[in-house]
């Protein structure tokens, strides 16, 4: 009894349960209105819609935890995806998807290192650097690569994009949805980053730097190296997301990922990640992203015109961040009370 009470108390101080409840309420509302939400094909659709934003969110989460912010990842992902696809088309590559993924990862690492160099080594503010690099990446794509929509992608990518782990079929409507193999890639990255953050000194270093960079340096963390390596990782994750997106859409579109950064950052913050850095969990980050994805995808089931989607997303963000802000306020209050009573004692 006592342990459950302390557990409940602990949970009430965290953000995830609130997000989870909001998420659940939204799902039930949609289900109640449409009767379609918990149908197997809709769930699979949502899972498959989560893959790309989910990967972006993982990268953004890492950056925000370290006390930075990254607005360049859509441009970075577009550039490495586009360069990869174009090169493989040019050499008329006929092999499997692994070459595309590998190549995108290498390009992503290089572009990430570019961000990391300026942010970590030259200690420039992350927002300015990524605003700049975002333009640079877009420029390279449009100038050097002369980008336009590629409606044909290499066969390896095309086949991988349409292959499914399983297919869900809605018995009522007869609609089917495929669960893409890419979902496995997403789960692997998620588990990998979870492990890094929880069980490596490098991962704890990211949290430490987000808490206090000076303290991290004094404690003996290699702040510069940690940051550079982290931005390389983020570049690779974003590039993977870019390739997956191209595979799933069966075409390489140079601009349609641009502009995603704000919703992704919103999802991460909605999940309880402190925008000031150092605080947040991967679980919360995923819940927040899922919430955004569901709002974006399921408004139609509620009978709300898609043109009102951004109003809803915006409202979601304000309410969500409002809840966490209220919580912080509440925590501070109980804390000051606690010290007061201590001093009196």
């Amino acid at each position: 009894m006592d342990t459950t009470r302390t557990l409940l108390k602990k949970l009430s101080r965290r953000n995830e349960p609130y997000i989870f409840l909001v998420l659940l309420a939204l799902c039930l509302l949609i289900e109640f209105r449409s009767g379609q939400f918990f149908s197997s094909n809709n769930l699979v659709d949502i899972a498959s819609a989560l893959i790309v934003p989910g990967l972006f969110a993982i990268g953004t989460f890492l950056v925000i935890i370290s006390g930075g912010i990254d607005v360049s990842f859509p441009a970075l992902a577009s550039l490495s995806m586009y360069a990869t696809t174009k090169y493989l088309l040019d050499i008329n590559y006929q092999g499997g998807v692994w070459a595309a993924i590998l190549m995108a990862l290498v390009i992503g690492a290089l572009l990430g290192a570019f961000n990391g160099l300026f942010i970590g080594y030259f200690k420039l503010p992350a927002l300015i650097v990524t605003l700049g690099s975002s333009s640079v990446f877009k420029g390279i794509m449009q100038g050097a690569l002369n980008s336009k929509q590629l409606t044909i992608i290499p066969s390896g990518m095309r086949n991988w994009g349409t292959s499914a782990i399983f297919t869900a079929r809605n018995p009522v409507s007869g609609l089917t949805s495929r669960m893409p193999v890419a979902f496995i890639a997403f789960v692997i990255v998620l588990l990998f980053v979870f492990f890094i953050l929880k069980y490596t000194m490098f991962g704890r270093g990211i949290y430490a730097i987000g808490g206090s960079e000076v303290s991290a340096h004094r404690a003996g963390f290699n702040v510069v190296r940690t940051k550079v390596v982290m931005y390389i990782m983020v570049g690779m994750i974003a590039s993977l997301a870019g390739v997956i997106r191209a595979c799933m859409m069966q075409q390489a579109h140079p601009t349609n990922m641009l502009g995603m950064e704000m919703n992704i950052i919103a999802g991460v913050v909605l999940g309880g990640t402190a925008i000031t850095g150092g605080r947040g969990t991967l679980l919360g980050c995923m819940l927040g992203t899922l919430l955004i994805v569901i709002v974006e995808n399921s408004m139609i089931l509620l009978g709300i015109p898609t043109s009102y989607r951004s109003v809803f997303t915006g409202a979601m963000i304000i309410i969500g961040t409002g809840i966490s802000a209220y919580q912080v306020m509440h925590m501070n209050k109980t804390h000051s009370k606690r010290t007061k009573s201590k001093e009196a004692a």
Binding site: G211, S212, V214, A216
Partner: peptide, 21 residues
């Protein structure tokens, strides 16, 4: 400023230096 990490637990604050060393 004590060079602590406000966002981390007491445990980590105490153990980091040792682990890094």
């Amino acid at each position: 400023d004590f060079s602590v990490f406000p966002n981390l637990t007491v445990m980590e604050n105490l153990a980091f230096n040792n682990e890094l060393a």
